[in-house]
Nucleic acid binder design. Sequence first.
DNA 1: ATGTTACTTTACAAAGC
DNA 2: GCTTTAAAAAGTAACAT
Lengths: 190, 205
Amino acid sequence: MTYKRVIFMDPEIKIENVVASASFDQELDLEEIYERFEDAEYNQEKFPGVVYRLTEPKTAALIFSSGKLVCTGAKNVDDVEVAVDKVINKLREAGIEIKEKPKTVVQNIVASADLDHPLNLNSIAIGFGLESVEYEPEQFPGLVYRLDEPNVVLLLFGSGKIVCTGGKRPEDCEKGVKKVKQELKDLGLL
Amino acid sequence: RLRKWQKRARVKDSTERNLLFALGELDRMSSQLNLPKNLRETAALIYRKAVDENLIQGRSIEGVSAASLYASCRKLDVPRTLEEIAEVSRISKKEIGRTFRFISRKLNLDLNIVSPRDFIPRFCSKLNLSEKVKEKAKKIIHKAEEKNILSGKGPTGIAASSIYIASIECGEKKTQKEIAEIASVTKVTIRNRYKELVKKLGINL
DNA sequence: ATGTTACTTTACAAAGC
DNA sequence: GCTTTAAAAAGTAACAT
């Protein structure tokens, strides 16, 4: 840990949630899974997938009859793999044949960061341009800022805290935060 | 050819029927809220523009009407709360809010950011407060803006708290409950905001 | 009067209505 | 479009103590 990390991780971001998807290339009998899992939820009327929660890592898996799966709640990309492995083991223990582990694809990463400096959202909205920003304090306390490169959405708060979402890789969030930080500096708002 | 012509006539027909319905909605909501004529006209202009840009697709006419009305109030810097608009509409304030954000982005309405100051004249009038209270409340807001202690806070809550403080300072005290009802915020919010304003602006009550 | 819980916003996949 | 899942930010609201 190292040098490289210290240098390139500059705008320390904390990954709060990772959403990923995967596909077992086979159909699954959700009724069977629901019966054999002690703690799974399944209400067809409510939602077409089985909801299965893991405590370690604390995540939730949504299992569909098509054999596709969604994993949410992981605090880092590696935990997604751990969670999916546990779901596979659980399925096999329940007597459901799973040929091999599918590739997981990260679909979204939510991260938080702190600029350690209060922000004037009014000035930022005007400085960034009312057309590229959304700030409606009656509806939500955060200022919504959409970036094209990287393709992420940032929520800026008066406290200086930031939420970055929409990234596919941790670097997307890193870059996004770095970019707003620089833009704020350029406008003399930080 | 004849079919094509008939189809066009039918489309034109329904478009006109929808426009009439929307204008009727705008008029109905406007009268219920006692909005002035120029504001109704602005709302109609915004609605027509939304139709021209095909923004109604996938949205209800009532929702776009309510959002257009909210937008026109914003355009003229005499904002109503989403709560107030929702009260005279069948659409929820959540949906009116999303529709409003959508059309204001697409139509480049370039609206000013809502300032708590914009609510002072209307709220004070409803509370029968004097010109002196209005001016004092605006001064409080101005100082708070300079100190940047308003970012992210709801403008109606700040307007309400400023009025609460100003009414006491001017000897025309109104209760938190009275102000809360007119500003559509809870008394808890007024209490929290006024305590913060008093503390951070060094006001002695 | 305070405390807890819950809802607002952002992104994203999944299958089905 | 909606439904469900997760998580953060800060403000406001609703209901309980």
